[in-house]
Lab assay of single mutants.
Amino acid sequence: MQGVVKVNSALNMRSGPGSNYGVIGTLRNNDKVEIIKEVDGWYEIRFNGKVGYASKSYITIVN
């Protein structure tokens, strides 16, 4: 499943599904990501070869 990031500035990509996990990357508005699965309001995603987590509130699913 594919998604597009929708933010005003930047979205942190984290090592786990929560804001208490470390930041491993930064996503920008309109970045395209691969959604692997949903975990407690977060998406596990793949972006630029990295796998991490981002809040699903800021990612819109596209077909």
Rank of each mutant, 00 (worst) to 15 (best):
M1L: 14
M1A: 11
M1I: 15
M1F: 13
M1E: 07
M1R: 10
M1P: 06
Q2R: 08
Q2E: 11
Q2H: 12
Q2G: 08
G3F: 03
G3V: 04
G3K: 02
V4D: 03
V4Y: 08
V4A: 06
V4G: 02
V5I: 10
V5Y: 01
V5P: 02
V5A: 04
V5T: 03
V5L: 04
V5W: 00
V5G: 05
K6N: 13
K6E: 13
K6G: 10
V7W: 04
V7H: 08
V7A: 09
V7E: 04
V7R: 05
V7C: 05
V7N: 09
V7I: 15
V7Y: 07
N8D: 11
N8M: 11
N8F: 08
N8S: 13
N8P: 07
N8I: 14
S9N: 13
S9D: 15
S9C: 05
S9Y: 13
S9R: 07
S9P: 06
S9K: 07
A10G: 14
A10W: 11
A10L: 14
L11G: 04
L11F: 07
N12R: 14
N12H: 09
N12I: 09
N12P: 15
M13P: 02
M13D: 00
M13T: 03
R14V: 10
R14L: 14
R14G: 02
R14Q: 09
S15D: 15
S15V: 09
S15A: 13
S15C: 05
S15P: 02
G16Q: 03
G16E: 02
G16I: 00
P17F: 01
P17Y: 02
P17R: 02
P17L: 02
P17S: 02
P17T: 02
G18M: 02
G18C: 03
G18R: 03
G18F: 02
G18S: 08
S19A: 13
S19C: 06
S19H: 11
S19I: 14
S19K: 13
S19Q: 11
S19Y: 15
N20C: 05
N20Q: 11
N20V: 12
N20L: 14
N20P: 04
Y21R: 03
Y21F: 15
Y21C: 04
Y21G: 02
G22I: 13
G22N: 14
G22K: 14
G22M: 08
G22S: 15
G22L: 13
G22Y: 09
V23A: 10
V23W: 04
V23Q: 05
V23R: 06
I24M: 08
I24G: 02
I24H: 03
I24L: 09
G25I: 06
G25M: 14
G25N: 09
G25Y: 14
G25A: 09
T26W: 10
T26C: 05
T26K: 07
T26V: 15
T26Y: 14
T26I: 13
T26N: 08
T26P: 06
T26D: 05
L27M: 10
L27Q: 01
L27T: 02
L27S: 01
L27K: 01
R28Q: 15
R28A: 10
R28D: 15
R28V: 12
R28G: 07
N29P: 10
N29T: 06
N29A: 06
N29Q: 07
N29Y: 08
N29H: 11
N30P: 04
N30C: 05
N30Q: 09
N30W: 08
D31H: 04
D31G: 03
D31P: 01
D31C: 04
D31R: 03
K32F: 08
K32M: 15
V33Q: 00
V33Y: 02
V33A: 03
E34G: 06
E34H: 10
I35A: 02
I35C: 04
I35T: 02
I35W: 03
I36F: 15
I36A: 06
I36D: 04
K37L: 09
K37C: 05
K37V: 10
K37Q: 09
K37D: 08
E38A: 08
E38C: 04
E38S: 09
E38T: 07
V39K: 08
V39G: 04
V39I: 15
V39H: 07
D40C: 05
D40L: 10
D40S: 14
D40P: 09
D40G: 11
G41K: 07
G41P: 06
G41E: 13
W42K: 01
W42E: 01
W42M: 03
W42A: 01
W42Y: 11
W42D: 02
Y43A: 03
Y43H: 02
Y43R: 01
Y43D: 00
Y43E: 00
Y43N: 01
Y43W: 09
E44G: 07
E44P: 00
E44Y: 07
E44S: 06
E44I: 06
I45H: 00
I45W: 00
I45C: 04
I45F: 09
R46V: 07
R46W: 11
R46H: 14
R46Y: 08
F47P: 01
F47E: 03
F47T: 07
F47S: 09
N48M: 11
N48L: 10
N48I: 09
G49S: 09
G49C: 06
G49K: 11
G49I: 05
G49M: 12
K50C: 05
K50I: 13
K50D: 14
K50H: 11
V51L: 13
V51T: 15
V51D: 07
G52P: 00
G52L: 01
G52R: 01
Y53G: 00
Y53A: 01
Y53D: 00
Y53H: 03
Y53E: 00
A54M: 04
A54L: 06
A54Y: 01
A54D: 00
A54I: 08
A54N: 00
A54K: 00
S55G: 14
S55W: 12
S55T: 12
S55P: 15
K56A: 13
K56N: 08
K56P: 06
S57Q: 14
S57R: 15
S57Y: 10
S57L: 12
Y58S: 08
Y58F: 11
Y58I: 03
Y58Q: 07
Y58T: 06
Y58A: 11
I59K: 00
I59H: 00
I59P: 00
I59M: 04
I59G: 02
I59A: 02
T60W: 13
T60C: 05
T60K: 12
T60E: 09
T60R: 09
T60Y: 10
I61D: 05
I61Q: 07
I61W: 05
I61G: 05
V62R: 06
V62Y: 09
N63K: 04
N63D: 12
N63H: 12
N63P: 13
N63R: 03
N63L: 07
N63Y: 04
